[in-house]
Simulated assay, not measured.
Amino acid sequence: MEVDLMIYILFVFIVVVIIALSLWVLSLARKQKKSAVLFEENYDLKAITIADIDRMEDGSGFEMYLYRLLIELGYSGVYKTLGSRDFGADVVFTDREGVRNVIQAKRYSIEYPVGISAVQEVFSCMRYYKAKKAIVITSSHFTESCETLAGINFVKLIDRTDLIHVIEAFKDGDVIKARDIIEGEPRMILESWSEANSNTLHEVRKDYKAEKYVKKVMSK
């Protein structure tokens, strides 16, 4: 009797494990299929929402989406850079004024803001691509220091809210509105670091302790 009970329990355990593994494999397959759709050339671009972008497993799908979106918006000279050695630009396009723009795409979770390195990278690659404007587009938000450096260097920042507006305008067929958001003037900060007061650009204020230390060392 005890042997039969043990066999029954073992059988039930094996069945439960098999069912659990089957459900896990099915869930994984669906997730991979959803991600793969974003790389296909024939998926409906207007069906993509910010929620779909949030579900992307990495930045490649987001870059491909932006690449296709810019083409659909009628921009010229649109191309996606290679994944390696892109020097800081993921997508390049020419705007309505005939000016070449470089874009760095950051598909981040909403709880992780984009930091200062994104601006440094996209700004530094402008000469390589012979571009006159630089843009950082994210599905998240930007840190204060990132916004400050972007404002000083006239780098356009398109955050989650702006991106949603672009997506909605595209879905509504309002191409001009979508373009206006993308090509809008960046937020500018005109004060240099030496002119900033204690409440502005505090991340790059002068280090007087370092100066005092160097003067002390040099005076010996």
Rank of each mutant, 00 (worst) to 15 (best):
K177V: 05
E168A: 07
F154L: 11
K177G: 07
K171H: 10
G184C: 06
E183G: 08
E185H: 11
G173R: 06
V175H: 09
A169M: 14
D180W: 00
I181A: 01
E183K: 12
V155E: 07
D174A: 09
D172S: 13
K156E: 14
I181Q: 02
D180P: 12
E185S: 10
I182A: 00
T161C: 04
H165W: 06
E185Y: 14
I176F: 13
T161D: 01
I176P: 05
K177E: 03
L163D: 13
L163F: 03
I181L: 03
D162G: 03
I176N: 05
I181Y: 12
I158E: 11
I176R: 13
K156G: 09
G173H: 14
T161S: 07
V155W: 12
R179H: 15
V155S: 03
I181K: 02
I164Y: 00
G184P: 15
I182F: 00
A178K: 00
I176V: 15
E168K: 15
I164F: 01
T161F: 02
A169F: 12
E183I: 11
R179M: 14
D159S: 00
E168Y: 05
I158M: 11
D174C: 05
A169H: 07
F170C: 08
A169Q: 02
V175R: 13
D174Q: 15
D180I: 02
T161W: 01
R160S: 10
I167C: 08
I176Q: 06
G173V: 13
D180A: 12
F170D: 11
G173L: 09
I181C: 08
V155F: 04
E183Q: 15
R179W: 04
D180G: 08
I167E: 08
H165M: 15
I167L: 11
K171W: 00
A169C: 15
I176H: 09
E185D: 08
R160I: 05
H165K: 15
G184N: 14
V166I: 11
K171M: 01
K177D: 03
E185N: 10
I167M: 06
I158R: 01
E168I: 06
H165D: 10
R160A: 10
I176W: 07
D159G: 00
L163E: 14
G184W: 07
R179L: 09
T161G: 05
K156A: 11
V155P: 07
K171T: 13
F170H: 09
A178M: 04
L163Y: 06
I182V: 02
D159P: 04
R160L: 03
I181D: 06
V175I: 12
E168T: 05
L163K: 03
A178T: 03
A169E: 01
G173D: 05
K177Q: 04
I164M: 04
G173N: 08
R160D: 08
L163C: 11
D159K: 00
H165F: 10
L157Y: 08
E185F: 07
D172L: 07
A178H: 02
K156M: 15
H165C: 06
F154I: 09
K156T: 12
V166L: 04
L157W: 03
A169I: 02
I176S: 10
D159C: 01
F170W: 12
V155I: 09
E185K: 12
V166G: 11
I164H: 00
D172Q: 13
L157N: 02
V166H: 00
I182C: 01
E183A: 15
R179K: 12
D180Y: 02
F154C: 14
F170R: 03
